[in-house]
Simulated scan of single mutants.
Amino acid sequence: MINLGEVQELKITKIIKAGALLKDEDANEVLLPHEEIENEKIGDIIKVFLYNDSKGEIFATKTIPKITLGKIAHLEVREITRIGAFLDWGLEKELFLPFKEQICKLDRGRSYLVALYIDKTGRLCSTMKIRDYLRTDSKYKENDRVSGVVYNVVDDIGAFIAIDNIYEALLPNDQKRGVVAVGEPISLRVASVKPDGRLNLSQRERGHLELDKDAELIFDLLNDYDGFLPYNDKSDPDDIKDMFCMSKSAFKKATGRLLKGNKIEFYKDGIRIKEDKNGRK
């Protein structure tokens, strides 16, 4: 069978002016355009990708694209139109991403995760709605380091990540640091593995390692703000989260560590870097 959107090995049965005719074991036929013929001859078996032209007809190409049917890839937006976007997938004819298959505003030149599918008209298209294409059978376990790409952000929940462009994972809001955007590559820690195999992620480290990083972050911000910040253990948790991207509990632990290390002191409804005997910070 000639499988649109897939890589197949087909046999050259005839060479004509338009190109080489390829057939599968069931005698289904497809054309490899003449400009792609090099030293191939009748009887050769070659690896090709099957795609649609602008009229919807199926052709073969020896160029293997960056994505195949049912798979996911991180592709760059080349053009944005009223009906959708066009992506660079490695072929001369760019891949269409319909407007209805987009989940956020796209920027030309940025890359986003998409899956390849065949639409109702029988043409190859891409979609940003990739959750159903992701798997939950990874071998990752708690505290493993993983890399992925953000494929969706839901304000009340968190960021959804495709690990290795294969596995489904969630970065909950309370485990985020700063802003993450759709299409952004990201490296994280596996915080837990759900019974169904989905991964919960965190940008925070474990225990004392995280405490050190929180303390370092607060101290760096104090330096950026001339040694004083109007936050302490009585500050509103939301204000602390907005400023430091950490929970109030984490903030209190980190400031406690800085106090114990004689790095800061509480001062006039805030914290400041502690000066030495000569008045130096």
Score class of each variant (00 low, 15 high):
N52H: 07
Y140K: 15
F228T: 02
A250E: 13
A27L: 11
K281H: 12
Q175S: 08
S249Q: 14
G56M: 06
R123E: 04
E38N: 13
P237C: 03
I273Q: 03
T63Y: 09
F59I: 04
D53F: 09
G122I: 06
G19F: 11
Q203D: 00
L201V: 10
K263E: 10
A254L: 01
V153S: 12
V154R: 13
S138T: 12
R110P: 07
S138N: 10
N3T: 07
T127R: 02
G43Q: 06
I271Q: 00
T127C: 08
N223D: 11
F49A: 03
V77C: 06
C245L: 00
G90T: 04
K274W: 02
F244T: 03
L170E: 06
F160N: 10
G70L: 12
P237W: 03
L124Q: 04
K66S: 11
I45R: 14
N278W: 13
M246V: 01
D164I: 09
K253E: 14
Y231W: 03
D220W: 01
L4I: 12
R257Y: 13
G19Y: 14
L258N: 05
K55Y: 13
M243H: 00
F59P: 00
F251W: 03
F244D: 04
R204D: 01
A115E: 03
K100S: 13
K100P: 00
Q102P: 01
K248V: 02
S202I: 09
E101Y: 02
N232M: 00
H208M: 11
L211N: 07
N262V: 03
I118G: 04
R110W: 05
S192Q: 11
I118Y: 01
E35D: 13
P195K: 12
I271G: 05
F59L: 15
Q8N: 10
D53R: 09
K105M: 05
E142T: 15
V179P: 02
L171T: 13
F99Y: 11
K66F: 07
P65W: 05
L22R: 10
G122P: 07
N278C: 04
E101A: 03
G43C: 06
R189C: 00
E35W: 12
D137N: 15
K100R: 15
E76R: 15
S126D: 08
P185I: 02
G183A: 10
K41N: 04
R280H: 13
E168D: 15
L21T: 00
L222E: 02
K234V: 06
Y151I: 08
I15R: 05
D236Y: 03
D276I: 06
K141G: 11
K23H: 09
I2Y: 05
V150D: 07
E36D: 10
L4F: 08
T68M: 00
F86I: 10
I67E: 04
Y133R: 11
D174M: 01
R177G: 04
P230C: 08
A254G: 08
W89Y: 15
T13E: 14
K62W: 00
D155Y: 11
D238G: 01
E29V: 09
K41P: 00
I2K: 06
S111A: 14
R78L: 12
G178C: 07
I37A: 01
